[in-house]
Write a protein that binds this DNA or RNA. Structure first.
Lengths: 343, 343
DNA sequence: GTCAGAGCTTGAATCGTTTCAAGCCCGGGC
DNA sequence: GCCCGGGCTTGAAACGATTCAAGCTCTGAC
């Protein structure tokens, strides 16, 4: 591949001049500019970002670490972040941590070595030691946490209004007539999950329904495991729930499969609502009532904050906490008779 | 951030020695090695890949251009490619072209400037001029095409056995009793789509069913558009189809929404099968019969071929063409009575 | 006609690595 | 005791850009 030196030689000017033409930072006479541009075209020259970055110590690249891109929520987040980055001429490197703390550590180190200028991080669910977190944060490179918010660590973060969103979903189920509502969660090591459970409790309390801890089903993010947990709970003796609320996409899949396996029909036998679109929610029969997170916006806003930090626009010492509202899409799975038949 | 020079200073050795410890390319005495490693730890030093790449002109990075990561097929491909890359110590940069030829061009240029060592490319559906394609390919950097195969251009490629896979799906519908089978496709500018149509025709011919061009519904990749096309065709006068086969995920969504809008139930009123899992196919009521592509493997194998080219293992002059078989998941949507009632 | 200064253009230093060639040290063979 | 050679270690060049300071060429004012 041709270098700037080759271009200078062909154009008959100095490398400095070629550089000035490319970056546009210094005026160059029309005559020389034309010669340089012709040479660039003839040689099919592409400036070497590697060399440029070394000199300027700016890579104009951001990194984003997500648990798993095959979970539909995350690609939307990434696209949002990508759009915000592109607006400012930055690129985005997306990688998967598989919710593994060790892998997350490797990736942080890798991105650091690649000299990305900032990192968007969805913390791995496998408990990330506090020590590691603090190390990430005083890494002298800006980090914004997305979706999942670390405990007790001051850091910029963007996520949904977990508590409100969960309360909205559960209140809707109550409004539709459900009274014994179970909640199936992801790992409760995650603060978000705990906040969603809190929203669930708030909704019950406002409706004067006692909270039954036996209806809080804590799980993980593997649909198969969640499915097993739900099957067990649903087939137990005693009164089962008349509705289930799920706190994210993977657990929703687990819960729905458990319903199927237990021969429960929705909403006839059991009402259902969940966080996060399953991409085809509207096509399900019945269609699924969903608390929709503004995934694209979460990515977009987080990247904006990160870029503001990088470019020194956001100079606040304290961390920025942004919580975006969710919206409720009411569909068939929550269509329960008022004053439910289940008593 | 500390540089290798700082490490050398702290460890009391030369930068050369530090470099040798890091790369392991030259023997270093145990005593010095220990001092260097201590210094690295103390300083929290991360080697600067930018400088290393400049010197070695190796970035150990691959790029992958997909149309849109929010289509569930692509994240799986990316994860496959990521795994193959990681096996050899490479990283992967994933970007979205939005099926836009212009954007694709920009991205290729960007990746080139970033000096990725090879590119995995899912060609944009918006017709890519032949001139641009050839330019990509003699780019002096290896390219492997995935999923979508360009016409008339010799290039390494990995994709599914389109024709066989489509024939398998359509034959299954025939076997289940369908006789008037419509096919709804993506943009027929794509060779793959044309091959899938060919598979459809082969299945019909083998069953001695005449091909009716009025049942070949060519569309695009926007579910809304496909939906509109299907609604129009389905509500037309005359005998409608008794089954529909869809050639990819986005068109499947469009078709299913059209069924819903036209009040058609599956499989009672119309049988259905499609290429590509909709992530929750098994949960649909009815569940959807699907021709499943080995998405992860497509990404994995493509990245392997690319890496072989980069590392000079694959030295064939001719291009490598790899076609992987699909598998058929039979589910409820294709459960049609033999000797169908629709006459 | 001279000189100041504006405006281009240029050469050289520099970024943080890798790597080559050269230097150093030490032990063993004669 | 001397010399040879092997094995570590080191210093310096080089990768391809940016950028600073200095040099050059004009133009315009006096």
């Amino acid at each position: 591949m041709p270098s700037i030196k080759k271009v200078a030689e062909v154009a008959g000017v100095s490398v400095g001049t070629v550089s000035h033409v490319i970056t546009g930072s210094v005026n160059v006479s029309e005559a020389l500019r034309a010669k340089v541009q012709a040479a660039i075209r003839d040689l099919n020259y592409h400036p070497n970002h590697v060399a440029r970055s070394l000199k300027t110590s700016k890579t104009r690249t951001l990194g984003i670490i997500v648990p798993d891109m095959t979970i539909p929520f995350f690609p939307q987040v990434i696209r949002g972040a990508e759009a915000a980055a592109r607006d400012k001429g930055y690129s985005l490197i997306a990688v998967n941590s598989d919710d593994d703390g060790e892998r997350q550590k490797e990736l942080l180190s890798l991105l650091r070595s690649q000299r990305v200028e900032g990192i968007l991080l969805v913390i791995a669910a496998a408990p990330t030691p506090l020590s590691q977190l603090t190390k990430i944060l005083d890494a002298s490179i800006p980090v914004v946490c997305l979706d999942r918010i670390p405990d007790r660590v001051p850091v910029d973060s963007v996520s949904v209004e977990d508590t409100d969103a969960a309360e909205m979903g559960v209140s809707h189920l109550i409004h539709m007539g459900a009274r014994r509502i179970a909640i199936v969660t992801g790992p409760i090591t995650l603060k978000n999950e705990r906040r969603r459970v809190q929203g669930y409790k708030q909704a019950l309390q406002k409706a004067k329904i006692p909270v039954d801890d036996g209806l809080i089903w804590a799980g993980n993010l593997r649909p198969e495991d969640v499915s097993a947990i739900c099957r067990e709970k649903l087939s137990g003796t005693g009164r089962g729930p008349d509705a289930v609320f799920s706190t994210n996409g993977p657990t929703a899949l687990g819960a729905l499969r458990a319903f199927r396996d237990c021969g429960l029909q929705t909403p006839r036998d059991i009402a259902f609502a969940t966080f996060d679109e399953l991409t085809v929610d509207d096509l399900f029969t019945p269609s699924i009532t969903t608390v929709v997170q503004p995934a694209y916006d979460i990515g977009f806003r987080a990247a904006q904050i990160l870029l503001d930090r990088i470019e020194g626009v956001a100079t606040e010492r304290e961390s920025i906490t942004l919580r975006l509202p969710a919206t409720l899409k009411v569909r068939e799975s929550s269509r329960v008779l008022r004053a439910s038949a289940r008593l």
